[in-house]
């Protein structure tokens, strides 16, 4: 299998359909407009042909993430925990402002968490996280195991 596969940005796609003309495997011809990862052979013909620049080639194997210093992780986690509490408090209050605060607190925490080492679902951190949570009591463990299989090919 080639190292890359094609991804279509649905916001940019203007249905010029040149990708359909040039694709040797029919991977770009799908009902939901999402290019079929399994069929794509990574030749890049569609990305070169697309007049609206809506297709890009993405690596199948992501590079390892940048290492993070402990001090930075600690600082980011402290802020994340504060944002978590802001979300939990605002989430228990009525009104448009409280609702906006809860949403905003979740989004900022997510962004901080991305820079705290959880950017990619393919990363080693994500694998260790899933390994850890699947043992927690009451958790939908099969969901965690499915994700482990999907991204890391791990059998439980």
């Amino acid at each position: 299998m080639a190292e890359k596969y094609a991804v279509r940005n649905l916001r940019l796609c203007t249905k010029d359909c040149l990708c359909l003309y040039v694709c040797p495997t029919g991977a770009s011809d799908t009902e939901n407009s999402i290019i079929d990862r399994e069929k794509c052979m990574g030749c890049g013909a569609c990305a070169q042909a697309c007049p609206s620049g809506a297709i890009s080639m993405v690596p199948r194997i992501m590079p390892p993430q940048q290492p993070k210093e402990e001090t930075v992780k600690t600082a980011l986690r402290a802020l994340i925990r504060s944002k978590n509490r802001q979300e939990a408090i605002a989430g228990a209050l009525p009104g448009v402002l409280a609702q906006a605060v809860a949403r905003s607190a979740r989004l900022t925490a997510e962004d901080l968490c991305r820079e705290g080492g959880y950017m990619l679902p393919q990363s080693e951190n994500a694998r260790q996280f899933l390994q850890y949570v699947k043992e927690l009591p009451g958790i939908p463990a099969e969901t965690a195991e499915e994700l482990l299989r999907e991204f890391f090919g791990e059998q439980s």
């Binding site: 991804v7 279509r8 999402i34 290019i35 990862r37 993405v58 986690r77 994340i80 925990r81 944002k83 978590n84 509490r85 979300e87 939990a88 979740r106 925490a109 997510e110 962004d111 968490c113 991305r114 959880y118 950017m119 990619l120 679902p121 994500a126 996280f129 850890y132 949570v133």
Partner: peptide, 21 residues
């Protein structure tokens, strides 16, 4: 990790998956 931290890790990775279709 607190439950809310784990929740944020997961919703963030969900976004990461979405971006990769």
């Amino acid at each position: 990790l607190t439950p809310m931290e784990m929740s944020v890790i997961c919703s963030n990775l969900a976004q990461g998956c979405e971006k990769q279709y």
